[in-house]
């Protein structure tokens, strides 16, 4: 009986190793696919807080742009956005898109509270279908993607990132 139990336990452990190992392989493959997909700005749509649909190819103009995926309840996201808001040089150099999958009403309240509506270079967008989240493989917030004027990804920052660091990248 003891031997049978030990054998079942051993099979369980080996099964768990196999399952986790396969999941790791699967996740690595998925990460690689995402990495290749976002190396150049992918095609996607997001909704402005005025209700207009915005295409990603409109992002690529003659200036670099920053796409920050955030959540209004996240303290680190708020700190990063406040840092971006107070960095005038960054706003002169790049267009900043703050995007979230929360309802438009919540995002409007957030925009008003942080007084972002008066800033020309910072736009709050809604990812209503979580398409952008999926496309960029966002698992945690804030998640910031810095693109150059040609639409090439310069760097992806996971977690809060100071505006100074973003500025160093876009001013090159």
């Amino acid at each position: 009986m003891k031997r049978k139990l030990a054998f079942i336990f051993l099979l369980f452990i080996i099964g768990a190793i196999g399952y986790l190992g396969f999941s790791i392989y699967d996740q690595l493959q998925e990460k690689q696919v995402v990495k290749e997909r976002i190396a150049q700005v992918p095609e996607f749509t997001a909704i402005g807080l005025d209700g207009r649909v915005i295409q990603s190819n409109n992002f690529v103009r003659k200036a670099p742009f920053i796409l920050t995926y955030f959540n209004t309840g996240c303290e680190f996201c708020r700190a990063e956005i406040r840092s971006i808001k107070s960095h005038r040089s960054l706003q002169e150099r790049a267009m900043i898109y703050l995007i979230s999958d929360e309802p438009a009403r919540v995002l409007k309240q957030f925009r008003n509270k942080l007084e972002l509506d008066s800033l020309q270079k910072i736009k709050v967008l809604q990812d209503s279908t979580a398409e952008v989240k999926e496309l960029f493989g966002v698992k945690g917030v804030p998640n910031t993607f810095v693109y150059n004027r040609e639409g090439k990804l310069l760097k992806n920052f996971q977690g809060e990132t100071k505006a100074e660091i973003l500025y160093k990248l876009v001013k090159k």
Partner: peptide, 18 residues
């Protein structure tokens, strides 16, 4: 075998959150 299970579990969790 136990150690390998623990290591793949930690690697799996790390990949999930990163």
């Amino acid at each position: 075998t136990g150690l390998i299970l623990w290591l793949v579990f930690v690697a799996f969790i790390t990949l999930q959150v990163s």
